[in-house]
């Protein structure tokens, strides 16, 4: 058992080192290259005159931190959904939880009903939307027992909020509409330096809460009934899981747009690498793996940017869709 634990830590360590190297590399990329030694200088000194250091702090550092946080939180919510519904194809995007958040963001940015002018207002709206969508899915899961049917319910939920978003768009002011369209492509560059703390705060809260429910998560894999006979309060834990997922998904969606596939793909790959059901290690793995995936996406986007402007959402779908197909072929 001890030696096994060590091997999980070794895997997490490797992922962490890889992530660190890619983060540093990503920081050198952008509209103009910055040498690695200037990256360190920019991170630890606050000389306002040096252009490189200023660019680093104002543009690149927020972009890369956002990439790390977005990846970590989305894949963690994917893991939570997969454990809750005992379904390897569950994730915040396919279950329509992202769409709930998007709908609320659409309402707040484009309509006069929701005057959530501030960042916190927007995040609050997104989390609320994600939470409501999560509760709807939870409610349907009590009636829809078939795993694939539940995904169809999620897709319907997504289409329904998509239609409502269309209605809002039809009446929207052109400027707001443009802003919303850009948001919906998914971007890591919309978080400013002084907004980073909000993102970090919510993400940390979600991660800490997840680590606190590792024990019930581990028991849930035996099924609801067995878990409840081992002392898990099923009704309570379901709502807690949906709430944590809403916070994690909502805050990232509010800032970066609806990012697809990360939540579905990363937990599956992590389970393949770690070969365990212990959520303590899976949570750490998903945080590192998710961050790694989005940082890689960002590096690809930065490298391609002189030739091609690839939106984040297109890139995650290009990587994600084939992997999902592969999971379906293997498991169903």
């Amino acid at each position: 058992m001890k030696t096994l634990n060590k091997s999980y830590w070794r895997r997490s360590g490797l992922l962490f080192i890889l992530l660190l190297l890619l983060v540093l590399y990503d920081l050198t990329l952008g509209s103009f290259p910055i040498a690695l030694k200037d990256v360190f200088k920019g991170l630890f000194s606050t000389n306002p005159d040096a252009t490189a250091e200023l660019t680093l702090r104002v543009f690149r550092f927020p972009r890369v931190v956002t990439a790390v946080i977005a990846g970590a939180t989305l894949s963690l919510s994917g893991l939570l959904m997969q454990t809750l519904f005992q379904n390897p194809l569950a994730g915040p995007y396919v279950l329509g939880i992202n769409s709930g958040a998007s709908l609320m963001v659409a309402l707040s940015t484009m309509s006069s009903f929701f005057l959530f002018g501030s960042d916190l207002g927007l995040i609050g709206a997104a989390i609320l939307g994600a939470f409501i969508a999560g509760l709807l899915i939870l409610l349907s899961s009590l009636y829809v027992k078939n795993k694939v049917s539940l995904l169809l319910v999620g897709i319907m939920l997504g289409s329904f909020s998509g239609a409502l978003i269309n209605v809002v768009q039809a009446y929207a002011d052109p400027n707001n509409l443009k802003q919303f369209m850009l948001w919906s492509f998914g971007s890591l560059q919309s978080v400013e330096y002084n907004q980073l703390w909000i993102l970090t705060l919510f993400a940390t809260a979600g991660i800490v809460l997840t680590l606190l429910i590792v024990k019930p998560l581990n028991l849930l894999i035996l099924g609801d009934r067995n878990a409840s006979l081992l002392g898990v309060n099923i009704k309570q834990i379901r709502v807690v899981i949906v709430l944590i997922t809403a916070v994690l998904t909502g805050v990232v969606t509010a800032f970066c747009g609806p990012i697809a596939f990360v939540g579905l793909v990363v937990p599956n790959i992590i389970k393949l690498i770690y070969k365990t059901t212990n959520h303590y290690h899976l949570v750490i793995g998903c945080i590192l793996g998710g961050a790694l995936l989005i940082v890689v996406c960002d590096i690809v986007m930065q490298l391609l940017s002189p030739f091609l402007n690839l939106p984040l959402n297109a890139l995650t779908a290009l990587i994600g869709a084939p992997i999902v197909l592969w999971i379906i072929i293997r498991k169903f």
Binding site: V214, I221, L230, G231, K271, T277, N278
Partner: peptide, 25 residues
């Protein structure tokens, strides 16, 4: 019980201790 992938026999038996262990297991 159909078994769960990657769940070892020892881990399964250890789950029986869950009611006795603390919040963090």
């Amino acid at each position: 019980f159909n078994g769960v992938q990657h769940l070892s026999v020892k881990e399964l038996i250890a789950m029986g201790r869950a009611p006795h262990a603390n919040l963090l297991n």
